[in-house]
């Protein structure tokens, strides 16, 4: 599908051809609308090329509908009247609303994807900042509430226990894979390495599977559950020193300035503001207002900075 640029077509021949095609398309649509909904309608189209107007359904029919239109009271006539400006503004508003809703939904899906990847031990593949972690915590809290609610409803309702037996064949499959993995560790290691290049993942994935293989073996369960957080923590340790602010390519879209700003680390932003304010000190005679704004930034950034506000008082006095 070729996108048409919304501006006057420069080539006069192309413009004329486009006019004829689109005019016929509009008349066809008007015909369908009036037929399907059983309503009266008319269209008048003046072309720069032809002095006589094109009209639908016919000249007499259009005149009839136009006269009926003119006979209506002024208020009724103008209540639903549109010109190109109001029409375009209405469409822009509608599109922006749609965009906002879709962006919010995409953000939620991304954070959920991030959560599942972290559970699987892939946290090191992401570039994230404080905002992403906050969203991740909110998503996990919400999901845990859903899990708890579901667990409660299953325990309270006896019949649900019967239905929980029906997924048993799936669990048998999981058991088979698990047994095979544990019986031959080289095969187990090879399989996991093929899945993910990170060598520490086998332990994490094994930790996910073990509780369902030997639910009665407390020793194994405790041992494996103890390992998983350590592995994740090690990955986070490595990830910490590779932080790249504003480079969350997996989660962010740089096309949206407002969204990009919300992904910035608030502390870093404040530091940048602070540095900018400090940078302007040498030129204070020409940027008096920036100088005045500096103390506010200091107050916002760190707890001990307010005391430095006094530093600028002597200069203000000197200036006076």
């Amino acid at each position: 599908m070729k996108k048409v640029k919304l501006s006057l077509i420069a080539n006069e021949r192309s413009r004329k051809t486009s006019f004829m095609k689109r005019k016929n398309g509009i008349f066809k649509k008007l015909h369908e609308l009036s037929t399907l909904c059983g309503v009266q309608a008319c269209a008048l189209i003046y072309s720069p090329f032809i002095p006589v107007p094109e009209s639908w359904p016919s000249r007499e029919g259009a005149k009839k509908v136009a006269s009926k239109f003119l006979e209506m009271p002024r208020t009724a006539r103008t209540r639903k009247m549109m010109d190109q400006e109001t029409h375009l503004m209405e469409r822009i508003t509608k599109a922006k609303e749609q965009l906002k809703n879709l962006a919010a939904e995409n953000r939620e899906l991304q954070v959920r994807r991030f959560m599942f990847d972290c559970v699987e031990g892939k946290m090191s593949q992401y570039r994230y900042d404080a905002k992403d972690l906050q969203d991740l915590l909110s998503c996990m809290n919400l999901y845990l509430d859903q899990l708890n609610g579901r667990i409660e409803s299953i325990k309270e309702n006896g019949e649900s226990l019967l239905s929980s037996v029906s997924p048993f064949p799936t669990r048998i499959g999981v058991d088979e894979i698990g047994d095979e993995s544990f019986s031959d560790s080289p095969i187990h290691s090879t399989t996991r390495v093929v899945d993910t290049p990170n060598a520490t993942n086998p332990h994490v994935l094994a930790g996910d599977m073990t509780p369902f293989l030997d639910a009665d073996a407390n020793a194994n369960m405790n041992q494996v559950q103890y390992q998983a957080p350590n592995n994740l923590f090690n990955q986070i340790q490595r990830e910490f020193y590779n932080i790249n602010l504003n480079l969350n390519l997996n989660l962010n879209s740089n096309q949206y300035l407002n969204q990009q700003q919300s992904f910035m680390n608030p502390m870093v932003e404040q530091h940048m503001n602070h540095v900018g304010g400090r940078e302007s000190i040498p030129f204070v005679d020409r940027n008096y207002y920036n100088y005045n704004q500096l103390p506010a930034v200091d107050l916002a950034s760190t707890s001990y900075m307010p005391s430095t506000t006094d530093v600028y008082d002597p200069y203000i006095n000197n200036n006076l």
Partner: peptide
Amino acid sequence: LCGAEVAIVV
């Protein structure tokens, strides 16, 4: 696109 003047009443 075509610089036409239009009126549609429904």
